[in-house]
Amino acid sequence: MQDNQFSEVLFSAKQLSKIYRMGEIDVHALREISLELFAGEIVVLLGPSGSGKSTLLNILGGLDNPTSGEVHYKEHNLVTATEKELTTFRREHVGFVFQFYNLIPSLTAEENVTLATEIALSPISSNLALHLVGLEDRAHHFPSQLSGGEQQRIAIARAVAKRPDILLCDEPTGALDYTTGKKVLETLLRVNSEIATLVVIITHNASIAGIADRVIKMANGRIHSVATNSKRMSVEDIQW
């Protein structure tokens, strides 16, 4: 099913379930999901809101624990890991890109990137990271002085500056207009090709699926289908 170029399994999840208590209601966010993710591939998780994509992403990124089931990152068991071990895991391997960017408002673009490089094992310089997203000239701007797209690209720069093995992106274009959204996607593809990071993109926008190596569709907390694109489309060619 997989191309030969993606053979190293980074994540393997078995029978993952997650139940949230929201106030006084139980929400079944994930229902017995199993999947594998490979080093270097681009995966799009597609599904309507409430389908469990973000929950899955959070569990993979060590931000959250499943209620039952297993997740392994390489040989590390993420389910039995302590809070501290999960933090170390994120610190060393994971980059996050969020729908609302989550930049620290009191830090400039460059300082937001440095925030990540300071704690990473083998980071790239913040200048290089900013260069990668094409925003070196905005280095000294505060988030409030940047457009949404620029903020998201800074967030990507911050995520990739750690030189992560995995880049987890939760609706990275969700808050952006069409053109800016495309720019952000291009940036993600560039990161994937230049530092060979596994990129997982959550979206409810089916058009984005074209740029992925694999597309995993989710609904109601379950995996509905997994499709492999024989050829990835360029960002220019997709439309929404």
């Binding site: 990124g61 931000l63 809070e83 501290k84 933090t87 170390t88 895991f89 994120r90 610190r91 060393e92 994971v94 996050f96 969020f98 609302f100 989550n102 930049l103 620290i104 408002p105 925030l115 990540a116 704690i119 990473a120 911050r158 750690k162």
Partner: peptide, 14 residues
Amino acid sequence: RPQIATLKALGYYD
């Protein structure tokens, strides 16, 4: 809250 979450996500310890 969101900033703290971001720091945690970036890998900062509690």
